[in-house]
Design a protein around this nucleic acid. Structure first.
Length: 334
DNA sequence: TAGGCCATCTGGTCCT
DNA sequence: AGGACCAGATGGCCTA
């Protein structure tokens, strides 16, 4: 019945701390734990302390009997009342080890999830709750895009993606995208509002570009709201595009800032980070290049970006610059 | 220093 | 009986 992380075969076949664990091999076991993960060194030490505590308890009990008289030499005589207590303690330690292992597996899965949601960073990890929220938003936004069968509005997509994320996390995401986080505001109700400058202003701060108009937003309410610099509520933009109520019906209100998704198919990479291993995944990705003057997305991109817009994204596939962007978009819109 | 996040321990419950 | 799962408690670490 014991289930273990799939990625940890050594844990599947090796004995755990606790049950039938020989004291002599404790250092080796601890070394394995250290090598397995730095984060788990503390765990190994705790386990060692557990065993040490057991040992010390045994030694204390062996030093003398309850009356303080010297203990008889010779073969140890099992104490009648001790066995149940030892057994309970032993099983408790086994259960602790299993629980640790289970939580490690859970954390491994969470780490895997971090790598496939937008804004993955090894240096500044998303918290567990933020990872789950972002993943939920990501799935929801992607599924809505698929069901809509049309090009999603980038802004609405981003807003959906970031809905419910905390302020620091949204700042982190914005930082990842090198957006000016101050372009986003949060009102008292927790709804995201744009300040007097469009977020696209930060993304497309090029001379000659209508900074009031998000690229590709030549029509629609989103466009008009941006043009007029009206405060832009998240829910409004959301419903504008998705025609459905917010996915956050039961979630905390959005109190963060916004950042665009870096891709829409599970492969995510950021500027200054190594590109994902496309050779393994075989997925397409949108890689943020940050180079000014780029218009990497094809006209049939899923995002409504005008050809003249200097979209700071670059499409890569299998580590190379993607020539036929229509392929990825075509597959996406199928 | 308070608050957030996390790992771990622990006891209870459910399931096989 | 034993393992998986869960939630509460606790303490450590980090940051504003």
């Amino acid at each position: 019945m014991l289930t273990l992380p799939f990625e940890e075969p050594h844990m599947m076949c090796e004995p755990r701390f606790g049950a039938n664990y020989p004291r002599d091999s404790l250092p080796e076991r601890l070394e394995q734990e250290r090598q397995h993960s730095l984060d788990r060194s503390n765990s190994a030490m705790r386990e060692a302390e557990d065993d040490l505590t057991d040992r010390e308890d045994d030694e204390r009990e062996d030093d003398g009997d309850e009356d303080g008289l010297p203990k008889k030499r010779g073969p140890r005589k099992k104490k009648a009342g001790k066995e149940p207590g030892e057994r309970v303690k032993h099983r408790r330690h086994e259960a602790n080890a299993r629980e640790r292992s289970r939580m490690h597996g859970l954390n491994d899965a969470l780490e895997s999830l971090r790598k496939v949601v937008p804004c993955y960073s090894k240096t500044q990890k998303l918290s567990k709750i933020e990872t789950l929220r972002l993943a939920k938003n990501y799935i929801w936004a992607l599924s809505e895009t698929l069901s809509a069968g049309k090009r999603p509005d980038l802004l609405a997509f981003v807003q959906t993606l970031c809905k419910g994320l905390s302020q620091p996390t949204t700042n982190l995401v914005a930082g990842c995208l090198q957006l000016n986080a101050r372009n986003f505001l949060t009102d008292h109700n927790g709804e995201v509002m744009f300040s007097s400058r469009s977020p696209y202003d930060a993304m497309y701060p090029y001379p000659g570009t209508d900074v009031n108009t998000p690229p590709g937003h030549s029509g629609g309410s989103l466009d008009s709201s941006a043009k007029t610099f009206r405060h832009y509520s998240y829910s409004g933009a959301y419903e504008h595009y998705y025609e459905n109520p917010s996915p956050e019906s039961g979630s905390p209100r959005f109190d963060g800032q916004l950042s665009p998704p870096m891709n829409f198919n599970g492969i995510f990479s950021m500027k200054n980070e190594e590109p994902p291993d496309y050779s393994k995944s075989g997925h397409y990705g949108v890689r943020y290049c940050g180079a000014p003057g780029r218009a990497a997305l094809a006209p049939n991109s899923m995002y409504r970006v005008s050809p003249e817009a200097r979209f700071p994204y670059d499409l890569h596939v299998r580590g190379q610059s993607f020539q036929a962007q229509g392929e990825v978009n075509g597959s996406f819109h199928n």
